[in-house]
Amino acid sequence: MRLLVVEDDPLIARSLDNALAPLGNIVEVFTHCAEASAALCQGGFDLVLLDLGLPDGNGLTLLEALRERGDMTPVLILTARDGVEDRVRGLDLGADDYLAKPFSLAELEARVRALLRRSQQRSDNLLRLGPLCFDSASGRVTLDEAVLELPRRELLLLEGLLSQAGDIAPREMLESRLFGFGEVGSNALEVYVSRLRKRLQGSGLCIRTFRGLGYRLEEART
C-alpha cells in the first residue's frame, strides 16, 4: 500500500513512518500543503494521513480540493485541534476518519488498517478479515479457503459485521439488516450472533459484544 503523510512535525512524521512501513506500506512524507497537493495530483495513493495545521495553509483546503477533483482516496485526519467544528467540517468535506493528537500508535494502526480494508473492499467486492473472505457479488463465504455454507440471516449478519471492517457494527444496523424494520425481541439478534460465534470457533476470529451498542468481528487476541 502506498500512504501519503502530510505532517510538519518531524518527530511525529518519523514515528508514523516507523509504525506504518513495517506493515508493508510505502510511506511518503510531505511537510507542506503545496508539495502534498502536487504529489496527490499524480495519484496512486491508497490512503492520506492529513495534519490540519500546516505551515502554508489549512489541511482542510487540501482535502476540499482533493474531493472536488473527484479523488476518493481515503483520508484520515490527524490533528492537535480538538475542536468539534474542525472535526465536523473535516468529515463534511469528505474525510473518512478523524484521530485527535495525542494518539497511541496502536490506535492509529487499527484505524489505518480499517480504512485500507474498506478501500480494498470497494475495489474488489471482497470483504476480508483474517482467514475470512466474503464475496458480496456471489454471496460466497470462505474460511481458510474452505467454503462456509451459512443460512441467510447468518450470512446477512456476517456481511454486516464485515462491512464495518473491524469497527463496531451498531446493533440497530444489524437488526434492520436481518429483520427489516419490524419489531423483534431484544435477544433475537443475540441468537444469530451466538450461532455465528460457534461457526467461527477456532478460526482466530471472534465476535465481541458491546452492551447496548453492537458487535464487532475481530481477530482474537492471542
Binding site: 497511541s104 469497527d167 463496531i168 458491546f210 447496548g212 451498542l213
Partner: peptide, 14 residues
C-alpha cells in the same frame, strides 16, 4: 467503545 483504551473494559449502554 471502539477505541483502544476501552479494549480491556466492558463499556456498554443501558
Amino acid at each position: 467503545a471502539g477505541r483502544d483504551a476501552a479494549r480491556d473494559h466492558d463499556l456498554g449502554l443501558a
